[in-house]
Computed example of a mutant assay.
Amino acid sequence: MTAIPTHARPHAAPGATTLAVTARVLRQLRHDPRTIVLLLVVPSLLLGLMDALWTGQPQVFDRVGLVMLAIFPFVVMFLVTSIAMLRERTSGTLERLLTTPLPRPALLLGYGAGFGLAAAVQAAVTTAVGFGLLGLETAGPLGWVVLIAMVDAVLGVALGLLCSAFARSEFQAVQFMPVVVLPQVFLCGLLVPREQMAGWLQAISDVLPLTYAVDALQEVGSSSAATGRMGLDLAVVAGGALLALVLAAATLRRRTS
């Protein structure tokens, strides 16, 4: 098992312990080459594959590729976070951390911050590849694209932390993808415009946070300046991530038996 850092033991300040947990998550990711490839390389390769599929149709790639900048970070960070957090419980590391005076929300904040930083790097790299190497174009500010992709990646982190509390094995963690991730991908407006969906599907889509990330990017794609709708959509996604973190803290268990 991984030893708890000295400054993460009982009587340490919550802020210092949270930073210690964040640093520990980042060290683990740094020493896991396969996860690094999944985070930083695979989304860019998939985006390049989409560019090759629509060679000669730049308008199609601009529309779909822009949306995928929200979907790729969300899906990948959900998968990485849910499995990594499950390993923390099954290894007993989480149990030892919970024996300290550190409040559970602060502990989750440490994990969320560590994976969130990784999510930010992933979103930035994928966006840079899309616009710098693949010629992706959008009418709106590039900074908004990066910001939306980062917040959406953090949403994937938060939902991954939440779902990991209900899984007893890595296989069960992966099983949450068809339940939590795929419906959001299907109903976000990528495959079928939301206004063309049946009323009950639109109602479901309205409560799924990925919908608002996709809507924000579509707004960036069509508007040359930042709009209030972009800000509102981004606030909804951030609120969804915060709610998921709160629920994750409420359902956090020490270990999986």
Score class of each variant (00 low, 15 high):
192 V>T: 13
211 T>M: 09
221 G>M: 12
227 T>D: 02
69 L>Q: 05
102 L>K: 05
177 M>Q: 12
248 A>C: 12
243 L>Q: 03
196 Q>P: 08
149 A>P: 06
23 A>R: 14
188 C>V: 07
208 L>Y: 06
167 A>C: 12
238 A>F: 00
190 L>G: 07
118 A>K: 14
69 L>H: 07
188 C>H: 00
256 T>Y: 13
58 P>T: 15
16 A>Q: 13
47 L>K: 05
117 L>M: 13
137 E>Y: 04
230 M>Q: 14
99 T>E: 14
145 V>W: 10
243 L>T: 04
156 G>R: 03
201 L>M: 14
71 I>C: 02
95 E>H: 12
210 L>C: 10
59 Q>G: 15
110 G>N: 02
195 E>M: 10
71 I>M: 01
58 P>C: 10
160 G>S: 03
153 A>C: 07
138 T>Q: 06
170 E>T: 09
241 A>Q: 00
90 T>R: 10
5 P>T: 02
67 V>C: 01
13 A>D: 15
100 T>S: 13
163 C>A: 15
162 L>Q: 02
214 V>M: 08
173 A>W: 00
107 L>H: 03
192 V>A: 06
163 C>I: 03
99 T>N: 11
12 A>Q: 02
228 G>W: 05
65 G>D: 07
242 L>E: 01
149 A>T: 02
137 E>P: 06
163 C>V: 12
218 Q>S: 00
67 V>R: 03
44 S>I: 12
79 L>D: 05
139 A>E: 10
206 D>S: 15
189 G>P: 06
194 R>T: 09
123 A>H: 06
153 A>F: 09
205 S>K: 08
131 F>A: 13
19 L>F: 09
70 A>L: 08
67 V>H: 05
78 F>G: 10
21 V>S: 13
